[in-house]
Structure formats: structure tokens, C-alpha cells
Design a protein around this nucleic acid. Structure first.
Length: 442
DNA sequence: TCTGGGGTCCTAGGACCC
DNA sequence: TCTGGGGTCCTAGGACCC
């Protein structure tokens, strides 16, 4: 009997693209890409777009021409849709397996004791089929004795057609066979900086990294790097913090759709972000002890004067009500603001988060319960009727500074008026092809 | 013209204490 | 001339992830 423990990494294939295709099946086998907020960078690519050589994170303006020539369907990111479909995928996994660690919006680790299975691979194919059947999102599974190796296996599950979406590494030989074909930069935890250090030492593939000298790794790549190496050797030592549902910091910040130079616009934007971050804070039932406001210009415009400052404010006592955070934030912004710059972004970060139950009141605290009730009521209304149904006046109505979202698909699964219509003559099901060959989102 | 947003962990260095 | 040693806490910045 196999007493070994295995990790299976379930990863949704080109997740955001798969979400968009789910309601637009005519886009299957056609090039599709999804852009970041403000339509800035490419953050998801279909295989067809990858084949065109478009890299992850490329600024969209650099590939716009290429996209148009190849009839690439372009989408702005639609997080209500992706978040909802992510929940559905995770629900299915949790129905099938007792131990599921949700790692990101499109990935989860499953703990699979080897003893439970005669055939690990066929069990994984079953999981894959169930997710496709219940949600319609294609996933790949990589299975191995550690999370880092499961990540490696997953890459092969995706790219080797012979795997049919599942790759199990059950023997040392199988592991080394894949590691020698894996570039160090494709190992989870090894970023560009480390790739360069390793290359100078002649370490370019996963097997060489696995065999590297511990002391050298410890010195050059810190303990995080050493953990990665241990994981390649089959020693599981990277834990996923399950308490990550409770964030230790919360941020809200966006690039503007156009450069902003005046304080009133900055105040509106910052007020919106503070309202949003306070909502997130209350949703996880925490209070913030410190608040950081930051303001910066466009770092790519080297021809313009640059400015980037952060101001940290320690709150007199931890809190979560929007006005409690709004007042110091706006005061901080006024201290940071200087005329004569074209600003690209303003944002707020909350740190020193403590559970709401552990509130330490100051000697002079007024009764805060009326504030709490107001916030609870406001959050309930906004959850029921949609974001910003009730909002603070300072957040502005016109929001002329807001980012671009030119190609956004409907919130098919989370907004009544966006429910897909089925039947003959339904306009929502029809594709809208513009004369120049590029297809804009409906 | 146009370059995301939101996180975590680790380390070094400063402030402070005894 | 000469200026301790060790501990904690905090913060900023680096590296990495999706």
C-alpha cells in the first residue's frame, strides 16, 4: 500500500479567458485576451494568443496592432464574473475532496493520501471531468509529493497533450525527468532576480537547482529559496496559510483613466477607495490600526516631473467605520499633495489589522455603537442592491478620473439584467464584429 | 495617447531598552 | 587614542506570487 502523501494542484486553464468563453462558446479555438484594470496590460491569454507571442503583462498598446490583425477578441477584466465562477469551481472541489486549500482565484491544492487510491491519475481525471461538467471551466491537475513539485507537474499537464490535463509524479525518476526539462524561472518561487544569480552560477534547470549547494542557496536566495530547493528534493516545507482568508493588510488603489492634477479629483478618488477598503475590512470583521495614503505620478513618463510619497497615520484607536478612516485619509492626502504634477494614482492601505472583537478603546472614546449600526446597515443595502447603492457624497458621481474599461463583458452570473438570454433571435448571443476585424466586447 | 492591483514573506537597519 | 553587548520592535525595501 502506498502510504505517501500527495499534493494535487488544480489550476484553471487560462482562467479569465475560459470565463469569457463560457458564455461565448463561438470564441472557443479563437484568440482571446483579457486586460488588467484600466485596460493597461495583458493578464490572460488563450493558447492562440500565446502562440502569437504575446507575453503575460505586456502593455496592451504594444500589441494592439497585432491583436487587430489576427482578429483577437479583447476583454476588459470582469472580476464579478471571474470571482463567481471561481467560487463555483472551488465548491465542486470541496464536494469531492475533504482537504482543499484555495491558493488563488484559479488554483487550489488538494491533499491526497496515496493509500486512498489504487490509481491516482484516474481519480484526477474524474475530478477534472466533474469540474468541467458542473461549471464548464477546463482545469489541469499536477500531482507530486510537495506543492512545488505539484506546480511543476501542473505545467506539464497543461502543455503535453499526452497528459490529457493530468500529470502525476509518483517516483523519483519521474520527478527528475521533468525537472531537467524545467527552466529555473519556471519553478514556483524563483523570480527574475534569482534566475540571473543562478544562471551566473551555471544553474539553469530544475534538476540543477535541486542539487545546488545549501549554503550558497541560503546566502543568495534567503531561506525562501532554500525551502524551494528542499521542496524539489521531495521535502514538503511550504505551507499555505489557511488563515489567508483573514488578510493582514488591505489595499485599494487604481490608476486614473487620465492624468489628474487637481486636489478635488484626488479627494473623490481617495474617498471611493477608502469606502471600498473599509467595506473589505468590515467583511472580514477586522479593525485597522494604521492607515497609509500614497500618491504618485506616472513613472513611465520620464519626461515629466516625478512624485511619489506615502504617508503613514496611526489611528488613535483601531476602527472600521468609513468616516473613521475617511477623515484622517483626506487630511493625509492634503499633506501629500503638491501642485504642478500630473498624478497617475492615489491609494490607501490598511495595516495593523485586529479582530473586531478585540477592540481596545481609549479612555475618552465616545459610544461607537451607533457608527457600527450605520455601517452594518449600509453594507447590507449595498450587498442586496449592488455596490454604491448607498455611498458617501465625497466619492463623487461623475468620477471623471475613473479608469478605462472599454471591452467589459456582462456580469452574466451576478446581475439580473445581465443574465444570458437563450432562444432564437437573442441579440446577446450574437457576436459584434467591427469593420477593422477587431471584435469589441458586447 | 496608452504600462494592473492586491497580496505575502524575508532582511537589514534604526531606535530603544537594560 | 579609547565609545559594550544583546535583545526586541518597527519600518522600508526587495523579491516573489497570481
Amino acid at each position: 500500500m502506498n502510504t505517501q502523501k500527495f499534493f494535487a494542484l488544480v489550476d484553471c486553464n487560462n482562467f479569465y479567458v475560459s470565463c469569457e468563453r463560457l458564455f461565448r462558446p463561438e470564441l472557443n479555438n479563437r484568440p482571446v485576451l483579457v486586460l488588467s484594470n484600466n485596460d493597461g496590460c495583458v493578464i490572460a491569454r488563450s493558447n492562440e494568443v500565446k502562440a502569437l507571442g504575446v507575453k503575460m503583462g505586456t502593455p496592451y498598446f504594444k500589441v494592439r496592432g497585432l491583436a487587430q490583425r489576427h482578429g483577437v477578441k479583447v476583454f476588459s477584466s470582469n472580476y464579478s464574473l471571474y470571482g463567481d465562477l471561481s467560487h463555483r469551481v472551488m465548491d465542486v472541489l470541496q464536494q469531492l475532496e475533504p482537504e482543499v486549500e484555495i491558493y488563488s482565484i484559479d488554483e487550489a491544492f488538494l491533499m491526497l493520501p496515496g493509500s486512498r487510491f489504487v490509481d491516482l491519475a484516474s481519480h484526477c481525471h474524474t475530478i477534472r471531468e466533474r469540474v468541467r461538467q458542473c461549471v464548464g471551466i477546463p482545469v489541469s491537475l499536477g500531482v507530486a509529493p510537495t506543492r512545488t513539485l505539484a506546480k511543476v507537474a501542473n505545467q506539464f499537464a497543461k502543455k503535453d497533450p499526452a497528459c490529457a490535463g493530468v500529470c502525476c509524479l509518483e517516483t523519483p525518476d519521474a520527478i527528475d525527468h521533468l525537472l531537467v526539462q524545467t527552466g529555473v524561472g519556471d519553478v514556483w518561487g524563483i523570480g527574475n532576480r534569482s534566475v540571473e544569480k543562478l544562471r551566473r552560477r551555471g544553474i539553469v534547470n530544475g534538476l540543477q537547482l535541486k542539487q545546488a549547494d545549501d549554503d550558497w542557496i541560503r546566502r543568495q536566495l534567503t531561506v525562501s529559496g532554500l525551502r524551494t530547493v528542499m521542496e524539489l528534493r521531495g521535502v514538503s516545507c511550504i505551507e499555505i496559510d489557511d488563515s489567508r482568508a483573514q488578510k493582514r493588510t488591505l489595499v485599494c488603489s487604481r490608476s486614473f483613466g487620465r492624468p489628474v492634477k487637481d486636489l478635488p479629483d484626488l479627494r473623490e478618488a481617495l474617498s471611493s477607495y477608502v469606502s471600498r477598503v473599509a467595506e473589505k475590512l468590515r467583511a472580514q470583521r477586522s479593525l485597522a490600526s494604521s492607515l497609509h495614503v500614497f500618491l504618485l505620478t506616472n513613472r513611465f513618463r520620464t519626461d515629466l516631473p516625478q512624485y511619489s510619497r506615502t504617508l503613514t497615520l496611526h489611528l488613535p484607536e483601531p476602527g472600521s467605520s468609513t468616516p473613521h478612516l475617511l477623515r484622517p485619509a483626506l487630511k493625509g492626502l492634503e499633506q501629500l499633495f503638491k501642485t504642478g504634477y500630473l498624478y497617475q494614482k492615489v491609494g490607501v492601505m490598511l495595516t495593523g489589522l485586529v479582530p473586531a472583537g478585540q477592540r481596545q478603546l481609549s479612555l475618552f472614546t465616545a459610544n461607537a455603537s451607533s457608527d457600527t449600526e450605520l455601517m452594518t446597515a449600509m453594507d447590507q443595502i449595498n450587498r442586496r442592491w449592488g455596490r454604491d447603492t448607498l455611498c458617501y457624497g465625497g466619492t463623487g458621481r461623475a468620477k471623471t478620473w475613473a479608469g478605462r474599461q472599454s471591452f467589459c463583458s456582462p456580469a452574466y452570473t451576478t446581475r439580473w439584467e445581465d443574465l444570458p438570454q437563450v432562444g432564437a433571435g437573442s441579440e446577446k448571443c450574437q457576436e459584434n464584429v467591427l469593420p477593422d476585424g477587431i471584435i469589441e466586447g458586447s
